[in-house]
Amino acid sequence: MKTPPRQPRPAARRRPAKLWQLRLYVMDQTPKSVMALANLKQVCETHLKGRYRITVIDLAKQPQLARGDQILAIPTVVRKLPSPVRTIIGNLSDTELLLVGLDLRLAV
């Protein structure tokens, strides 16, 4: 399920501190999960073009991974980098709240 975008690599090399690592926890291909991934990608493309990497973790396949990031809600996005860790739950349909959650408003 890993979908590392190929293009941002050169950009990441230029400004390594600004590389965003995001994890998206989903459960199968439920509508909420699909929608969350689409929403996340869209926001990242808009605000973090070339500076992000999204790792999708399907808990249906890897249930043991839920413990590490204290996942309860599905879908959940965890911003691993830059620190501090931030968590956004939901299908990310509310872009405004997603930006607040990712602390992207300042970065914009």
Partner: peptide, 14 residues
């Protein structure tokens, strides 16, 4: 941060 609909499937999975 909450954004949109979710459920607690993660709890069930765990």
């Amino acid at each position: 941060q909450e954004s949109g609909a979710y459920d607690l499937e993660g709890l069930f999975v765990r």
